[in-house]
């Protein structure tokens, strides 16, 4: 199904609109809700909608990776942790105390959004040739193992480090006596 539609220049399809709406909506929930579980699920929702956006952009490979890694692993991990630690929803006790903090961060985020939106028109439309920009997985693979070989190895090393870290944290914890 390698349609040749160029998905960047054309007007966004309905599917895109829906997916982006969901993405923003779920992100809002993550921000607003005080209950960690709903945040986790909302995060899962955003991840799915972004995956959907990737698919709509034609980059299936990244979409699949997004679902597999993000939704499948990270979001599950979050939900797992939230459940394991049975975190109670955070009642906003000292709201007045944290109000300046809220306002300040809101101000900063707003400022950031403003700046970013100013640059929105800099996004280049699309290069002239609207040939299929959908690359197959093999082409991506060639890229990784030729041009980006070193970063790829580095990423491997990073993950290896992360595994070791996780083991140490788990192991370390077991070694010590239990307390509170």
């Amino acid at each position: 199904m390698n349609q040749a539609t160029d998905l960047i220049a054309g007007a966004p399809t309905v599917f895109m609109w829906v997916a982006s709406f969901f993405a923003i909506f779920f992100a809002l929930i993550v921000f607003v809700s005080s209950n960690p579980i709903s945040c986790a699920v909302a995060l899962m929702g955003t991840l799915f909608s972004t995956a959907a956006l990737y698919f709509s952009l034609g980059n299936f490979f990244v979409g699949a990776i997004q679902i597999l890694v993000y939704a499948g692993a990270i979001a599950v991990l979050f939900v797992f942790i939230v459940m394991l630690l049975d975190l109670k929803p955070q009642k906003l006790k000292n709201l007045p105390g944290r109000l300046p903090h809220f306002l300040f961060s809101g101000l900063v985020a707003g400022l950031l959004a403003l700046f970013l939106f100013r640059t929105i028109d800099l996004v280049p439309k699309a290069t002239e040739d609207s040939s299929a920009s959908i690359l197959s997985a093999t082409q991506y693979a060639q890229y990784f193992l030729s041009q980006y070989q070193v970063p790829f190895q580095a990423a491997g090393l990073l993950v290896f480090g992360a595994i070791l870290g996780a083991i140490v944290l788990a192991r370390g914890h077991l070694g010590k006596k239990e307390h509170s």
């Binding site: 220049a9 609109w17 921000f31 985020a109 939106f117 996004v123 280049p124 439309k125």
Partner: peptide, 21 residues
């Protein structure tokens, strides 16, 4: 708005909400 701009604005929202959280 073109797709690119839509995607970019979604990205901005995502980023800002992430920062806010």
């Amino acid at each position: 708005i073109a797709t690119g701009q839509l995607i970019f604005s979604v990205a901005i929202f995502l980023f800002c909400f992430g920062a806010l959280t």
